[in-house]
Amino acid sequence: MQTQAVETERRMIRDAEKETDMENRLSDGEKVFIISGAEADYRVDGRRCEDFRNIMVESGVIDTTDGSARVRFATTDLLVGVKCELQSVENSAAVQDRIRFSVDCSANATPQFEGKGGNEFADEIACALRTAYSNDYVVPDFEKLAVSPSHVWILHVDIVILQYGGSIIEAASIGAIAALTDTNICEVETKPADENRVTVEMSEMGKVWNLDTTRFPVIVSVNKLGKANVVDCSLNEETCIRSAVCFGFSFSNKMKPQNLYQVVQFDELSRLM
């Protein structure tokens, strides 16, 4: 009798564990439904494999930043703010990372982000964006950000993930472009000073310039659901992904960084692209 009680208790604990684990887990039947649907080019929410959800971009949403944007992809919600900082450095030409990214995951975004859960994910997104922006092709105004040999504009792009509903990397790249387009950078004048130094002064009141964002990269991730190539996965679809590849595209057919997770057959990859 006693052993039976222990058995039931164990089972209860096990079931409870399963339930807490269930946040993002689907049964095999549901997975088969999603995957075979995607292979037939039909998805649960009525989209085809190549369709995105509605994208809403709003710029100039935070007054306290120099530029900001809010991006919504159905349930995904991101807030992006840009702050400009004029830094005094020894040699401005040596400062390569003039656009810096940091990503914050709100603990409300998804249960997995509770505690420090979101930190690694945030680093990954920030790193992908950094790789995407770390070449002078995509940032035509790179030289212009260095105002003098000892002064350089640093643009801090802070991204906050308010709600996680899949396709964060797409939303983050779009948000970064929108916020940087919205960013007003002060016109400054440089004047020579003592000991070969340069002083920087604000030019006429309120005179600003904007970055040339025409070549800024848009990052798209393509996911494999069964044999189908799917873009913009919802949360449920994300649990069925076999592999994924992210590409950053800059207009005029140049492309940039990407990471590929897990397994993909070599001949399949060219079709992904």
Binding site: K254, P257, Q258, N259, L260, Q262, V263, V264, Q265, L269
Partner: peptide, 27 residues
């Protein structure tokens, strides 16, 4: 990174700019 016997790619990481043709060739 590849699994040579299974002919599967398990990791790709790239940086810098490439056109699609260059990318395919490099891969």
């Amino acid at each position: 990174a590849i699994l040579p016997n299974l002919n599967q790619i398990i990791c790709i990481d790239s940086s810098g700019t490439m056109s699609l043709e260059e990318y395919e060739k490099a891969l």
